[in-house]
Computed example of a mutant assay.
Amino acid sequence: MTERKKVLLRLDPAVHDAIARWAGDELRSTNAQIEFLLRQALADAGRLPGNAGRMRKRGRPPKSDSDDEETH
């Protein structure tokens, strides 16, 4: 898997709170919601690269077999 880029983003606290609430409603993390909105804006503007990877599914990631072994 390709390493994901890390970005420091400064937001107005009210904007962050609104995105965080929206993310909770959509079962996404705040980070995933920001990425979703950026991808949507890029697609609407016709600027989303064709080689952009897919978004991860909403909600918690499924447990892997290695997670089960670590907890037992």
Rank of each mutant, 00 (worst) to 15 (best):
K63S: 11
G50Y: 01
R28F: 08
E69R: 10
D12I: 02
E69Y: 13
D65M: 14
G50S: 12
E3Y: 12
L11S: 04
D17H: 13
K57P: 00
A23F: 14
E26I: 00
L42I: 04
D65F: 15
T71G: 10
T2D: 12
R56F: 08
P61S: 10
P62Y: 03
D25Q: 04
D65Q: 07
D44W: 10
R10W: 12
S29E: 05
A18V: 07
L9W: 14
N51E: 14
G59R: 07
E69D: 09
A18S: 08
T2H: 13
D17T: 10
W22H: 10
K6E: 11
D12Y: 04
I34T: 03
K5Y: 15
G53A: 15
D44H: 08
L42E: 07
D67F: 15
F36W: 08
I34P: 00
G50V: 06
D65K: 07
H16T: 00
R10V: 10
A45W: 03
A23C: 10
R58T: 03
L9M: 13
T30I: 01
A45P: 00
D17W: 11
R39H: 07
A43I: 01
K6P: 04
A41V: 08
G46W: 14
T2Y: 07
E69A: 11
E69T: 04
F36N: 01
R56C: 02
A45H: 02
A20F: 07
R60D: 09
A20L: 02
N51G: 10
L37K: 03
I19S: 03
L11P: 00
T71P: 01
R10S: 09
